[in-house]
Design a protein around this nucleic acid. Sequence first.
DNA 1: CTCGATCCCTGGACGC
DNA 2: TGCGTCCAGGGATCGA
Length: 299
Amino acid sequence: MPELPEVETVVRGLRQSILGRTILSVRLGKTDFIDDPAALEMHLPGRRIETVERFGKFMLLRLSGLANGDRVDGNGDAATASLLVHLGMTGQLAPSPAAQACGKHTHVCLTLDDGREVRYTDPRRFGRMAYLTAALLAEELQAFGADPLEVSAAEFATRIRSRHARIKALLLDQTVLRGVGNIYADESLWRAKIHPARLGIHLNAKEAETLRKVLQDILKKAIVMRGSSISDFLDADGEPGEYQRRHRAYGREGQRCYRCRTLIRREIVAGRSSHFCPACQTAPRRRKHASPRQARRNV
DNA sequence: CTCGATCCCTGGACGC
DNA sequence: TGCGTCCAGGGATCGA
C-alpha cells in the first residue's frame, strides 16, 4: 500500500527513467478511476514530462507546453498542466518496453518517444488519475495538510494538539498531514509510545514533538529502504521495498513487542485496523460514559 | 467537529 | 478442485 515512502520511491525511479521523454499516444483500459479520460487522450500526446514530483501520496508529472505551437486553450493554462496520479491501494506506475504484453489490470499506457510505455496498473482501481491545468491543480492541492518531512515542531503541535479526534485519525487525515497512511501511523505511534486512541488535544507538548521526530525518522529510513512491500507494492523498477522488515507494530498482531515482550494487539481505531503494544502504549482513560441528561446540563 | 457506516474493487486467505 | 465468505484499505460521502 503506497504511502509517502513508497510514492517517493516510485517518484525517484520515474525521475531516473522517464524525465524529459515525450508522450506520443495514450491507450486506456478501464477508466472509472480517471477524472476525465477524454482529457488524457486529448491533451497528453505531444507533451514532454518536465518534472516528476511527490505531493503527499500523489505523484505529479508536470508537462511541457504543447509541441510546435499548437493552439493552447484560452488562458494558456494548458502550457503548465500536470498529470496527477494516486496509486490508491494497489496502483503501480512504471515504464516497460512497448513490445511487452500488458497485464490484465493495466489500464493506462502512455507511449513514449523511446520505444517504451509508462503503464498504470491497478487491480482494485482505488487509485486516481487526472489531467489538471495549473489552476485546477493548485485548487486540488490547497486542501492538503503539511508535509510530514517538512513540518515544523510548532505547526505539528498546533495541528495535532488542537483537535479532539483520535491521534490515529489525525495522522491518517490528509488535510492534517499529507502522505501518512496506516502503516507509518502505527509504526510512529509505537515508536512514540502513544496509544492510537488518545485524543490529539490530550497529547502534551513533549509527546507531540516526540511523535513528529519519530515519524520523520521512520519516513526517512523507509525511503532509504525503498518503502514497505506488504501485498504488492513494487517501485518503478519493479522491485519490492525492504522496510517491512523493520516494522515494529504493523502486521505483528499476536507477536511480541520488541521493547517489552507483550503481545502486539490489533484493534479498529478511527475505523482503521491499528496495531499497538497494550503495555508500552497506554490506553487513554476510558471516557466516563456521560449520560445524555448530564451532557445536556452543561449547555 | 467528530464519529461510524457504506461504498468503491479485487485478490488472497480460509472453511467446507 | 471449487465453491462461498470475509477481509484489507484510501478516500469520498452521508447521516447521527
